[in-house]
């Protein structure tokens, strides 16, 4: 069990999506998503390819708008604040709502240490002792410290795939996010590394809010407290994971999770 890192637990909150629509040029990818993601829980988003689940994730931390011709409407509340408020700073939003992706993407020229410290340095942190402390805390929280503590200055890319993914999680945690978005974080990993990421997601949810997009239904069932099923840009069903996977209310959810389509 990794030690809790106080820096990560002093503030956290849930998310409320209110009538979120998203477009890629003229493609209407999300059609009015409203859902409340409870704080300090793991919420899974499932659905077939192209259903809008990753787009939804990228709307939460304002990454969708980085795509040329992409648009968003609606509100995403982080606590009480609308991340789409005119006064909201997208860079700050992305610091509060971190993200890890399907493929681990450590900065290729940087050491393990510098990968984790990168966000802090960008944010203007100059106190070396403090940076060292946060790097260690973040690597511990990402369940990676024991494996890398003796080679912190080796390249991040020298790690295995599973370790690289945990390095990316440590990098995201270093700036003390309130929410961590995970977009198929284990889909390129072997079963053992996958389980480590899942355990990590569960453990992190003691401190922060986790939203995980996954194609792996068993993963959603294992790791999450709540699950939302997306189809054609709509949220079809959302509820406690146990209910959704044992007695879904909507026929389309049943058909999807039992493999009858998608």
């Amino acid at each position: 069990m990794q030690t809790r890192t106080p820096a990560l637990i002093d503030h956290t909150t849930g998310i409320q999506a209110q009538d979120v629509h998203a477009w890629f040029d003229r493609l209407h990818a999300l059609r009015g998503i409203s859902m409340t993601v409870p704080e300090r829980k793991v919420t899974a988003v499932i659905g077939p390819s192209g259903c809008g689940k990753s787009t939804f994730l990228r709307c939460i931390n304002r990454m969708h708008e980085l795509v040329p011709e992409a648009r968003v409407s609606g509100r995403v509340l982080l606590g009480q604040e609308n991340v789409y408020d005119e006064a909201a700073d997208p860079v700050l939003v992305r610091r509060r709502i971190g993200m890890v992706f399907q493929k681990a993407n450590p900065f290729p020229t940087m050491s393990i240490y510098n990968n984790v410290a990168a966000g802090l340095t960008l944010a203007g942190e100059r106190d070396r002792r403090k940076v060292e402390q946060i790097v260690e805390q973040s690597l511990r929280a990402a369940a990676l410290w024991d494996e890398v503590k003796d080679r912190l200055h080796k390249p991040g890319t020298s790690l295995s795939g599973g370790q690289q993914q945990r390095l990316c999680i440590a990098r995201a945690l270093a700036v003390s996010p309130e929410v961590l978005l995970m977009d198929e974080p284990a889909s390129a990993l072997d079963p053992a590394s996958t389980l480590r990421i899942e355990e990590l997601a569960r453990e992190l949810a003691n401190d922060i809010t986790i939203v995980i997009v996954t194609h792996n239904m068993q993963q959603a069932a294992r790791v999450s407290d709540f699950t939302g099923f997306f189809l054609d840009g709509e949220l079809i069903e959302y509820g406690p994971t146990n209910d959704l996977f044992t007695k879904p209310r909507d026929r389309r959810t049943e058909d999807y999770i039992t493999g009858r389509f998608g």
Binding site: M217, Q218, A221, F245, T246, K247, P248, T253, E254, I257, T258, G259
Partner: peptide
Amino acid sequence: QQPMAGDLR
């Protein structure tokens, strides 16, 4: 098969 929902039941 990792059955779910009605199949699992």
